[in-house]
Design a protein around this nucleic acid. Structure first.
Lengths: 181, 181
DNA sequence: GTCCACATGTAACTGGTTACATGATTGG
DNA sequence: CCAATCATGTAACCAGTTACATGTGGAC
């Protein structure tokens, strides 16, 4: 039950239409909670039906015509409730680690190329995050309400740093490894 | 499409019944690919129907009676194919980061306690991984086919290390932060 | 012989994915 | 007026989740 809350957060930061939300998810919020436009439209309809958001009054909506939403007090209250509520961490799921474990059984043939590709992707993502950090959080002047956002970005940077390092180690290991079956 | 391959890997490591698999997923493989017993039974039925695995011949199965499976050549081939195939990384999804971003909008009230709880959970997981490392990979004697398994374990250790560090930083931040709305 | 743990399984639901459909607006 | 693009939406499917059902065998 996280997508509706991701949308509420985005709409509180700025009222938007479905497509605008989709684009914003492709950038900032999508870095840790991705969503397609179909998901977003479906969820916007639910949130509106539930009385959490409404279409901006100035507009009468029709298919094919842009419809912007804003958050109602009930929506803000629900978001605050959800943010504070205790939630168990979801069990980890990582395909790459699974594949490495499988490779330990059926052999590593063909894996190396894809590891290189992943390494490249993570390097690029890391560069993107670091660029955002330089731009939005220049050293020495974090406004108090920006501190949390910076913290979230740091998580992204550190995670990508971890993956680039781990993939490099893995590839080095492959160099040594006698080619199995 | 990862669960069937996780099961094939587990069955190649050792032929097992559904419940045994469930228990093994709760331990080792579940650390990066969790599954419930319902998922596992459903998937075992599919894999058997597809000719990838079979019940060990010695047994005639009945409801309530244990049924062990082993991997057929087609299953091993499919696993090797899947391991080598190129796959895009799945977009990141992390509820905790989402909640922090929401907190930047609706305030941090109530969040701190849950962050502490998560920190404790990650510390415990880290300790568990390190215990496994001490036990299964004593320094200086990695057999070649253990190197990949060790690499996977290192990923788990480094990820948990990251989370404990990040959560500590976050909590420190909270100490400083003027309590918002 | 009854209860409990073991073991396998069914059913209904939810969230995410993929493919496609439809209407409005704009540039040529 | 036609094609391309913007914008919203429908439908079918699949994997994961939750709740419950059914059968077996051993402990008491």
């Amino acid at each position: 039950m996280s997508l509706p809350h991701a949308i509420l957060t985005a709409l509180l930061e700025r009222p938007s239409s479905g497509l605008e939300l989709t684009r914003r998810f492709d950038r900032s919020i999508g870095y840790f909670w991705s969503a397609t436009h179909q998901q977003i439209y479906r969820e916007l309809a639910r949130l509106e039906a539930g009385g959490y958001i409404r279409t901006l009054p100035a507009e009468q909506p029709a298919r094919g015509q842009r419809k912007s939403y804003e958050v109602l007090p009930a929506g803000r209250a629900e978001l605050a409730r959800w943010t504070a509520a205790s939630q168990d961490p979801k069990p980890q799921r990582d395909v790459l680690l699974l594949r490495l474990r499988a490779a330990a059984v059926v052999g590593t043939a063909g894996l190396e190329a894809d590891l290189r590709r992943h390494l490249e992707l993570h390097r690029r993502q890391l560069a993107e995050y670091e660029e955002i950090e330089r731009r939005d959080f220049p050293p020495g002047k974090d406004a108090p309400e920006d501190r949390l956002r910076h913290l979230v970005l740091r998580a992204g940077i550190d995670l990508e740093t971890f993956w680039t390092r781990w993939l490099s180690d893995a590839l080095e290991e492959f160099g040594d490894l006698p080619r199995l079956p």
